[in-house]
Design a protein around this nucleic acid. Sequence first.
DNA 1: AGATTACTACGAAGGCGTTCGTGAGTCAAG
DNA 2: CTTGACTCACGAACGCCTTCGTAGTAATCT
Lengths: 132, 132
Amino acid sequence: MRPNADPPRPTDAELEILTVLWSRGPSTVREVHEGIARRKPAQYTTVLKLLQIMAEKGLVQRDERQRAHVYRASRPREWTQQQLAGDLLRRAFGGSAAGLVLGALSARPASPEELAEIRRMLDEYEKGGEKC
Amino acid sequence: MRPNADPPRPTDAELEILTVLWSRGPSTVREVHEGIARRKPAQYTTVLKLLQIMAEKGLVQRDERQRAHVYRASRPREWTQQQLAGDLLRRAFGGSAAGLVLGALSARPASPEELAEIRRMLDEYEKGGEKC
DNA sequence: AGATTACTACGAAGGCGTTCGTGAGTCAAG
DNA sequence: CTTGACTCACGAACGCCTTCGTAGTAATCT
């Protein structure tokens, strides 16, 4: 409907579907359903309905050229992750990125390798983000 | 109702109320309402109803000894932040803490001071968290 | 052609979150 | 005692999320 407007924040069920689309690439309803059903039992028509609603919202785009419509996420994974992280940052952490990092680490203890990866990422981010 | 069970994840409106309670300490409905109304117009009874529901869920505890009941958050801010961060980490980032950190930094660019604070926090966390 | 399968569209139900109006009770002042 | 201010309790409304059943249409098979 509004092709250029930002899609709204995905809900829980929508995020699960987007995860499948991001990892599989453009997929039919059946393929998404198979990807979902591994973890959570769901009827085929439930996934179909979700995808239809998500298409209305602009979260996914639909290619109707084949009989089995092909859906693809309209935003890349990183973009959506950024939206969600920013949203939580604002709502629950008062904008404190340090607070969010601490919260994440406390919630799911990170291995030394992962800590090293975070540090590496901080370095890279500090170099790249010289826009002020 | 279930005093020792973990309260569920707070919703958006509930989180706003909790934020007031965390910063003000135990408060009456009127005080919470004044704290909320600064940013978002809301009727007194809306805040009252929210607090009643939150008490049922166990998100807040109510002291009825005064005529104006006094509510307090049943979990500290850090605990709830940890829940929320862990939840997002699992749902949207596949458990990758590095991904979450990158998402947060991309969403709201951090100042060099904040980056330094994050690094300091990582060091401290690495020292303190020596529990396999 | 007729039957079976695969797919989309649609409507409806149930639950939850949010908002607010109304009623009833309590307390203090006139 | 009556009035007015303040408080809690409750129900209702509305919209959104999620789930699923049913119906209709297109392709395929015998």
